[in-house]
Simulated scan of single mutants.
Amino acid sequence: MQFGRHISGQFNVELESIRTHVLTMGGLVEQQLSFAMQALHKDDIDLAKKVVRDDHKVNSMEVSIDEACTRIIAKRQPTAKDLRLIMAIIKTITDLERIGDVASKIATVAIESSPLKDQTFQISLEPLGRQAIAMLHQVLDAFARMDVDAAASVYKLDDKLDAEYEAVIRQLMTYMMEDPKSIPNIIQVMWSARAIERVGDRCQNICEYIIYFVKGKDVRHLGEQSIDDLLK
């Protein structure tokens, strides 16, 4: 990804370093979410505990990147486009950290619900989890290249994730009606499903930040059609 040339070569080095750290953080968050879903589906308590333990790494990376961005703003007095990049990065790492929180909480659910686990409920989340992880992977790739077309494509994937989420909720509601004793465990699964669905919303946010950096347009709340019109 090219940020443009600056009079200060050190400025270029600093921007590239921050970009690299964001992608490293994104890779860790993707791994955390993948491990959390594996732990939930396979009843792997050791893996779930690892996800919970490693959450601090995500948090530390967010703080470190945020501090680096603050230093650049203070030292370099960035131009408009550079400032858009820095703001996009700050917002992106916030969403990544929150996805990391989702992974940690899903892992916690895997640990706490293990003695009562009904695999039927857990398996129903597998397609939803796969879609969320794929969406996260693709938006990180779009961020790495600051590719607005790829970002627009990823943005649309949230509709498919939402549809899968609604199907899961309908399935779980049926289970509850058939067996009221299962309600406490199903509520935990419902919470996990909702958390996974929110990953899609976080990915959409990152798509918006990419478009904001490249196009200089705030596309929040515009919707898919308006974004497509902007990119034509």
Rank of each mutant, 00 (worst) to 15 (best):
V58W: 09
S124E: 09
E62A: 03
I123P: 00
N59V: 06
V109H: 01
R198W: 11
P184F: 09
M61P: 00
G27K: 14
D82P: 01
D43I: 08
K217N: 07
Y175R: 09
D149E: 15
I18L: 03
M190G: 02
R170C: 02
Y165R: 04
L47G: 08
T120V: 08
I65A: 04
T70L: 13
I196F: 01
L157I: 11
L15P: 03
G27W: 04
R220F: 08
G26A: 08
V102R: 08
D162C: 05
Q188P: 02
A144D: 14
A144W: 03
C69P: 05
D179A: 12
L128W: 10
F3P: 05
H6P: 04
K75I: 12
K81T: 14
A132V: 14
K215E: 12
D118K: 12
G129E: 01
S60R: 09
D118Q: 13
M61Q: 15
D43W: 01
R76Y: 10
A39L: 02
L136W: 03
D44G: 02
I99C: 01
A144K: 14
R76N: 14
T70D: 12
R202N: 13
A132Y: 10
V58C: 13
I89S: 06
Q119L: 10
D46L: 13
S104H: 10
A144L: 10
D147W: 01
D55F: 03
L231T: 00
E178A: 10
S64V: 10
D179W: 06
T94Q: 05
V13G: 08
A48T: 08
S153A: 15
L23W: 01
V63R: 15
D82R: 03
I206E: 07
K105A: 03
G223P: 00
S104T: 11
I186G: 03
A151S: 13
V51G: 09
S226P: 00
M37Q: 11
Q2I: 09
S17P: 06
S114H: 15
R194V: 04
E126Y: 13
V139P: 00
I7R: 06
L128I: 08
L172N: 13
D162A: 06
D95M: 00
S8L: 15
V109W: 00
D149L: 14
I86M: 04
Q204K: 12
K181H: 11
T108D: 09
R5K: 12
I93P: 01
A88S: 15
T20A: 12
A163K: 10
I45P: 01
I18S: 00
G200R: 02
E112K: 13
Q31A: 14
V219P: 04
D229K: 15
I86N: 02
D101Q: 09
Q171C: 11
